[in-house]
Simulated scan of single mutants.
Amino acid sequence: NRGVRDWILALEWVQENIRSFGGDPSRVTLAGQSAGGGAVLTLLGIPAAHHLFHAAWCMSPTMSLIGRHEALALGDALAGSLDVPNSAAGFGGVDAGVLSRAQVPLVAASRGLGGLRRSVSSGLHLGPTVDGDLIDRPTLAALRGGSGRRIPLVIGSADDEFTMILDPYARFLRFVPAAPALALLGLDASRSRAYRAANPDVNGTTARLGRYVSDMGFRRHVRRVGDAREASNTWGYRFSWRSPVRGWAFHCLDVPFFFDVLGAHGVAAVAGDDPPQALSDEIHGSAVRFITSHAAGWATWPSARVFDEAPGTIAEGYAGVRPLG
C-alpha cells in the first residue's frame, strides 16, 4: 500500500500548496482512468482520505484490491525467485532491472486462455491490499457501508473496453457459437442465457466475448459502485463512440475527448483523422461543469449519459451487466 500512501501524500501536498496556483483546497476534484479509476474508488473507500478531496470522476475503473494472504503469497513467490526476504529491505537490495525481469514469469502466468479466464473471473492480482490498517475492508464493501457516499461521483466506462484483444482471432471466432465460447471463459449456461438476453444489441461471437470480458473487467464495477451509493449525487455515463480505426468503443479511446486534445500526437492512430469535435465538447464540457458545480447536468443513477455522436440519456445504462452479479 505504499502506492496508496503516495496518493494521499500528493493530495496533502495539494491541500498545502494549491492556493499558490490559484486553486481552492476546499474544492478538489479527483479524476482517474483504468487503474486510476480504481485508485479513485480505493480513496472513496478510505475515510481517512475524505477530507482531502470533494468530488470524483471515475473512468473505466478496475477493482484490483486484493486480500492480505494473496498479497503475501505473491511477494513470497517473487522473493523466492530472487533468494531474498519478502520485505522492503529484501527487495530494496535488488537491482531495479533484476527485479523487473523477475516479475516477467508472474505476468506470463496470466496470459493465454487460462490466464484470461482467471483474470475475467477473479480480477487483477496486483493492487492495493486489505492490510487492516490503511485499508480495513474491500472497496466495494466500504462503499456499500456508506464510505464516500456524500462525495459527488461521476462513473462510467467505454462500451467495448477490451474487445480489441480478440481482433486477431475474429476470422476464426465467426465460426464459433457464442455460448460455448462464453463457457470457456467460465460463464455457466443459465447465466449465459440471461446475459445474452440482456444484451440483444451485441451480435457475433467476437463482439459478445469482447463485451463479456469488458463487462467483467470494468463495466460491472460501474454498476456495483453506482448501486452502492446515494443516487442523488451519483451520475453514470457510457462512452459509445466507435473508433473508425478499430471499430470499437475501446479502452482509453475516451481520454483525448475528456481532455479535449483531439489534435494531439497519436490520437489519429486510435480515433481516425477526423474525430468528432462536438463529442469532445460534450465530454470535456461535462467534466468542466462537474468540477465547477459538483453536478453532472444529466439524470442521476441508474440513468446514464451516452457519449456518442448523438449524445443522450438512457434510463438504466448498465442493465446489461446485471446477470453477471
Rank of each mutant, 00 (worst) to 15 (best):
D254F: 01
P180M: 06
R144M: 03
S214V: 09
A142H: 06
D188L: 10
R229W: 02
L262A: 03
D227P: 02
E230Q: 06
A264N: 07
G204Y: 15
L209M: 10
N199C: 14
L184F: 07
L184K: 06
F218Y: 10
P152F: 01
V255S: 08
F218E: 12
L253S: 05
W235E: 00
I165W: 07
F258H: 07
D273A: 07
S190T: 13
R171A: 10
A158H: 01
F218Q: 15
D254N: 14
E282K: 05
G148N: 01
A142L: 01
G236I: 02
P256Y: 10
L262Y: 05
S240C: 06
P177W: 03
A181G: 10
V176N: 09
S192L: 06
A170G: 05
G266V: 10
R238N: 03
R219I: 07
S280A: 13
S280P: 00
E282I: 01
P168H: 07
M216V: 04
I283D: 01
H251C: 07
W241T: 02
E230S: 13
G145F: 02
P244T: 08
A141D: 14
W248M: 11
S214Q: 11
W248Q: 09
M164K: 09
A197I: 11
G186T: 09
D274Q: 00
M164D: 08
W235M: 01
A228Q: 00
T234N: 11
L187I: 13
F218L: 15
